[in-house]
């Protein structure tokens, strides 16, 4: 692996702090176990044997928002659910990211009506949108990998 070559005989590696921290964040990004609707079933498929998200180090779903870094909004968010979703987001410790999975979470999807929030970005800031109704498990995995790419580019001042 690359790191041994960089180590040399000294046992010292030099890297930018940003790279190291961002690398660490992407390798242990724990999603919250939180399903809303149809997309939650595909999210479960993504964790099950055929697709197996854990190959990429993102399998450990935490049932508590206090222990998770990544919120996958899997499904449509109703007006009744919106305050609950925001409260869950507020309970997550920083740094935290949001993936809007599926059309309903991204923009309301086919449900353009009184009951559904037209895109979850009305209530929480979204990092990655995954299209599809529902997206295939591959699409979700790709979405989270895209988020990893984004996190790797974060600089010191973004950390807050």
């Amino acid at each position: 692996m690359g790191i041994e070559q960089k180590l040399g005989d000294m046992g010292v590696v030099t890297a930018r702090l940003e790279d190291l921290v961002n690398w660490g964040r992407t390798r242990a990004m724990w999603p919250m176990l939180f399903g809303l609707a149809c997309c939650a079933i595909e999210m479960m498929s993504a964790q099950a044997a055929n697709y197996d998200m854990s190959r990429f180090g993102m399998e450990l779903m935490r049932a508590s928002p206090r222990q998770s870094d990544l919120m996958i909004v899997a499904g449509r968010v109703s007006r009744k659910m919106a305050p609950v979703l925001r409260r869950l987001y507020d309970q997550m410790p920083d740094p935290k990211w949001v993936v809007a999975m599926g059309d309903c979470a991204s923009c309301g999807g086919v449900f353009n009506n009184y009951a559904i929030v037209q895109g979850v970005d009305e209530i929480v800031p979204v990092d990655v949108y995954v299209g599809g109704c529902p997206p295939r498990p591959e699409a979700l995995i790709h979405g989270i990998m895209t988020l990893h790419e984004k996190v790797k580019l974060e600089s010191f001042k973004d950390w807050s």
């Binding site: 609707a37 109703s78 659910m81 609950v84 086919v110 009506n113 559904i116």
Partner: peptide
């Protein structure tokens, strides 16, 4: 918490187009 307004929304679509709602 997952009330989607499917019944109301189907009233605003034609019979065939409303079928998409039933999947969800």
């Amino acid at each position: 918490f997952l009330h989607t307004g499917i019944e109301k929304n189907m009233e605003a679509k034609t019979y065939v187009k409303a079928e998409v709602m039933t999947d969800r």
